[in-house]
């Protein structure tokens, strides 16, 4: 049938009145609608997101809830880009991974179930990281060292470097919950905030009450 976009045995020539640059104009409204969907979701909305900065600085007294009963005290002035403060009211009780940044340095703690020692946890983290960043040359640097929090939780830490970043990874295991602590950023910047980072790590503690 002339003028249709499909045919039983062959694709028909596009009728003259429906041609534009060799294309069938009748397909344009559908194509235009899809381009609008793409433009909105793949271009405009991500650009709007990029244009909005996180503006959620830590204030004195804040504590971050990693689990129902494991918390840490973030450094005042750092920006919270992910995670939940203790006591924040929502529809659901919230706790989980926390990510903060300051001056190009990112500080992240990821909690998850783990049955083992801090040494076994950091070995597992290294194994997964090495095998999921193939070609990225993830390398541990320096000696592994012990980290002890103010509440007496003992963990281990070591430096790492990859072509894209460098920093420190620490691992704790508190009553079946593993904590992966990661600090990444330019070396100079990390040095500049090292005291605050140390304070945050040492503040990790298990509370008696639910967060």
């Amino acid at each position: 049938m002339a003028g249709t976009l499909t045919h039983d045995h062959h694709i028909p020539r596009v009728p003259v009145e429906h041609r534009f640059l060799g294309l069938d104009k009748r397909s344009f409204p559908y194509a235009a609608a899809v381009l609008v969907v793409w433009l909105v979701w793949a271009v405009i909305v991500p650009k709007v997101n990029d244009a909005i900065a996180y503006d959620d600085p830590v204030v004195a007294g804040d504590r971050m809830a990693l689990t129902d009963d494991i918390v840490f005290t973030p450094a005042v002035g750092w920006n919270v880009t992910a995670g939940f403060r203790v006591g924040e009211e929502g529809a659901l009780p919230q706790s989980g991974a926390a990510v903060l940044d300051s001056g190009g340095v990112q500080f992240a703690i990821v909690p998850d179930a783990f049955d083992g020692t801090p040494n076994e946890l950091i070995q597992q983290i290294n194994k997964v990281t090495t095998r999921t960043t193939k070609g990225e040359s993830f390398h541990v640097t320096g000696q592994r060292f012990t980290v002890t929090t103010d509440s007496g939780e003992v963990g281990v830490a070591e430096g790492f470097v990859s072509p894209r970043t460098q920093g420190v990874i620490a691992a704790f295991v508190i009553d079946g919950t593993g904590l992966q602590v990661q600090v990444v950023g330019p070396p100079d910047q990390i040095s500049a905030v090292s005291d605050q980072v140390t304070d945050m790590v040492e503040s990790i503690t298990k509370t008696g009450d639910s967060a």
Partner: peptide, 23 residues
């Protein structure tokens, strides 16, 4: 489409209304 857009919209919610509301 969806992975990029979902991430961007959720990030806008978190920046605008806070992490708890967004969660």
């Amino acid at each position: 489409l969806a992975i990029t857009a979902n991430g961007a919209v959720m990030s806008i919610y978190a920046k605008t209304f806070g992490q708890v509301w967004a969660a």
